[in-house]
Design a protein around this nucleic acid. Sequence first.
DNA 1: GCAATGATTTACT
DNA 2: GTAAATCATTGCC
Length: 208
Amino acid sequence: MDTDYPMLNESFYTRNEVVRVAKDLLGKVLVTNVDGVISAGKIVETEAYSYLERACHAYMNRNTNRTQVLFERGGTAYVYLCYGIHRLFNVVTNVAGIAEAVLIRGVEPLDNIEAMTRRRALKKKNYSLTSGPGKLTQALGIKMEHNREWLLNKKVWIEDRGYVIAGDEIRESARIGVAYAKEDALLPWRFFLRENPWVSKGFNNYNL
DNA sequence: GCAATGATTTACT
DNA sequence: GTAAATCATTGCC
């Protein structure tokens, strides 16, 4: 099984500007093939992280078992367990050796909504299906075993279906849940599509 | 070895 | 609005 759209290639991810990549991922489509079941959603919310700032797990090039994957080349998946419950999906960016990544925080369901609804144990589709970083990984079947997966391997990948995002469709804000990062928590490195109901909720979506 | 802590979600009151 | 769930990772003793 496959889709008929072009995958983002390695050079999209290896650019030396994680904030740019975070913005460019808006409107792209995150696809998974889990045991032959393909499901997909359009990316509507992202956050950038860099070794240069305190919110990043690899701040100051901290190299541990968990953060090693952040030093891989751009186009590698970084999945980690958050709060002991949720898996959060990131795309590693930049060249090997430079620890930067983009967290995917919201997608708009496109393909195989039935499978996603089932994985989320919802009775029917509603906005809680994929509007949050832990929700969308559950809906798309992303698990810890996808950590370190190469995004051109057609297990988990991102493709361009031609959605064009106008500049004034993009809103930005500080990142969510990183107050511990002190002044770096103020960086406007969260990006989302204006008035899109699949952006994560329960937080202050200022700049709307 | 041990205690603290999350890049969250959900179910309560 | 508040709190519980739940555990790998981390840092410190």
